[in-house]
């Protein structure tokens, strides 16, 4: 179990770094993005396998954790939270469900004449779309939540000279 969780985190870290690289983060952010991606994905994997939590709620817990750690890391390296957590969230995109939605829609259109088959594919499309959309929504909300709970802190992560403050 522990090995499975660790490998899960490792692959998520590689995915986080690569998807992050597309958006050109500052170089100092890469190790932190990797750690965040690993923590988030491994936590979701653990919740889903050990506790049988559903994917939307597990994603919410994972992304909330990513958000909180992004806040702590961001203060250390003067990076806005979004710079750290967006790449870390990307490995949690429910890709297989998204794929099955597209597949379901296509096959529905191919089987319009066959009532049973088209119903089946319609069901595939609806189920998978719902799972995809709700998981994406929970991911976005979870990571963003710290911004709304403590805006003052999250808005000043890139401030280096607080002591010299003039207000």
């Amino acid at each position: 179990m522990i090995v499975a969780i660790l490998t899960d985190g490792l692959f998520a870290a590689v995915a986080g770094i690569g998807f992050g690289a597309i958006s050109y983060p500052p170089r100092r952010a890469f190790p932190y993005i990797a750690v965040l991606a690993a923590i988030g994905h491994a936590l979701r994997f653990y919740l889903m396998t050990a506790w049988h939590v559903d994917i939307a709620i597990a994603s919410f817990c994972a992304s909330l954790t990513i958000g909180i750690f992004a806040l702590l890391f961001g203060r250390r390296i003067y990076c806005p939270m979004t710079v750290l957590y967006i790449p870390a969230l990307l490995p949690m995109i429910p890709g297989m469900y998204a794929y099955k939605s597209v597949y379901g829609l296509l096959m529905f259109m191919q089987n319009l004449d066959a009532a049973v088959m088209s119903n089946l594919y319609l069901q595939t499309f609806l189920t998978n779309t719902l799972i995809t959309v709700s998981t994406l929504f929970m991911l976005a909300i979870g990571a963003t939540l710290p911004i709304f709970i403590i805006p003052k802190t999250t808005y000043s992560l890139t401030r280096k000279h607080k002591d010299k403050s003039n207000s």
Binding site: C79, I86, K160, H161, K164
Partner: peptide
Amino acid sequence: LPINFEYNSELSGLSWDAYDGL
């Protein structure tokens, strides 16, 4: 522009430097 997180962090930092260091 292409998405660029380096602008996001460095230019946010610049605004604080301007504000604190005048």
